[in-house]
Design a protein around this nucleic acid. Structure first.
Lengths: 128, 128
DNA sequence: CATTCTATTGACCTTAACGTAAAAGTCAAT
DNA sequence: ATTGACTTTTACGTTAAGGTCAATAGAATG
């Protein structure tokens, strides 16, 4: 089962446009085969698309996403590059931890807003 | 102690530009006083700026941030609006929970990358 | 075979969130 | 009174991540 996906199959599955997938190909993130001129995506492409969308949801740029994908594919051979990569990983992790905290704080704030609204609703509901 | 902040005090504290703060004023998020023409920011403004930056870090647009700020300031009086607001809050919370999961998954992935790199480093370190 | 989808390429267009530069005013200190 | 640091408004510029549109090409189906 080496299923190949057409572009519209994937756009429907992920709720994105064909333009978006072609853009990701132009950016070198994904490498579909060709039958004639039409693209056929492999499982690996599909998996990468999922990663891209995940990265997108948490606010990574395409450049950052590409960096992570590449780091996964081919860990650099040179010492300097490896140390640089470790530093970048540490930075990213700190950034993500900050975002986690921001999200938790915002959820807490949303809950306060929710309670305000519910209280207000109860008042109106009783009064009317 | 009703300290007022100048614009550059705040840009330095938060690591943002004056342009950014003026933009936030144009967007109606912040309402500094004026002494002559120069802006003087209150504590409440400073607090809102912190909220904006937090929202920004987790990828909210200015419009979304404004919506949250307004919801906090003045819970709507009308029933339809209140119900709409509750729906939006529920949506936002779901979105934030998804982002939390995305972040956790990405952190896990970064840790794999880190281990790959450390292993590679050990190999090189021993070999040289 | 003609038609009807669906895909492709190339080009220019769009939006948010500021950046940047110009021209000019304010204020304290030298 | 000039320098220097800081501020203002106005206005055009920029970048990322696609959107949109036109013209063309294959593919599939009646």
């Amino acid at each position: 089962m080496d299923k190949l996906y057409t572009i519209t199959e994937l756009t429907r599955e992920f709720g994105i446009s064909t333009r978006t997938l072609r853009f990701y190909e132009d950016e070198g993130l994904v490498h579909p085969e060709r039958r004639g001129r039409t693209r056929l995506f492999r499982h690996s492409d599909r998996h990468i698309i999922q990663n891209i969308l995940r990265g997108r949801r948490i606010g990574f740029t395409i450049a950052e996403i590409r960096e992570i994908i590449l780091a996964y594919r081919e860990p650099p051979g040179e010492l300097g590059q490896l140390n640089l990569m470790l530093k970048r990983v540490t930075e990213k992790r700190a950034e993500l931890n900050q975002k986690r905290k921001d999200i938790d704080d915002t959820i807490a704030e949303l809950e306060i807003i929710e309670e305000l609204a519910l209280t207000r609703l109860a008042e109106i509901g009783v009064g009317s």
